[in-house]
């Protein structure tokens, strides 16, 4: 049993980067993109709640801190996936672009909290754009995955 448990833990912890064939690679990219989308949605919700006076700055900051970490881990995850062919590599580049573009707006939330700049409206627009780009990238990768 101990061996099983250890094997399970190791497999559970295996970075998705070791997956090799295209379908698995694409599946892994989708997972990372979804994690990034989830983090952007979290940051957006936190901003809205803070603007409505429902979420104190301290907790908003903690939420955005966690979201930043999730997005950067997603970027790292996608970057370290080994693409087996040029098509997959192209999709990976798109995904890296969408995920890293989300980093800026999410990080800006903390500046906004401390400093009030950029404007709340601009901030939300930037977050929305990041969310839309992530959505588009996810759809593109999912379509390629389904075609496999």
């Amino acid at each position: 049993m101990l061996v099983g448990v250890l094997a399970g833990t190791l497999t559970g912890c295996t970075p998705a980067g070791t997956r090799s064939d295209a379908a698995n690679v694409l599946g892994s990219i989708v997972e990372h993109l979804e994690a990034a989308s989830s983090a952007v949605a979290t940051a957006t919700l936190a901003v809205e709640l803070h603007e409505q006076g429902r979420l104190p700055a301290v907790t908003t900051d903690a939420a955005v801190d966690d979201a930043t970490l999730t997005v950067s881990e997603a970027v790292h995850g996608i970057t370290t996936v080994v693409a087996p062919d040029a098509g997959t590599a192209g999709l990976r580049t798109t995904a890296i672009g969408a995920a890293s573009a989300a980093l800026g707006p999410v990080a800006d939330v903390r500046t906004w909290l401390a400093d009030g700049a950029p404007e709340g409206d601009d901030l939300r627009t930037a977050l929305d754009e990041a969310a839309t780009d992530l959505e588009a990238a996810t759809t593109a990768v999912e379509q390629a995955e389904a075609a496999q």
């Binding site: 979804e34 989830s38 949605a41 919700l45 709640l49 903690a62 939420a63």
Partner: peptide, 18 residues
């Protein structure tokens, strides 16, 4: 509905704040 998958403690309390 927002597509948020919980991976942090801070997300657990967002509905309460809302």
């Amino acid at each position: 509905p927002l597509g948020i998958e919980v991976d942090a403690m801070s997300q657990i309390v967002l509905p309460v704040a809302q």
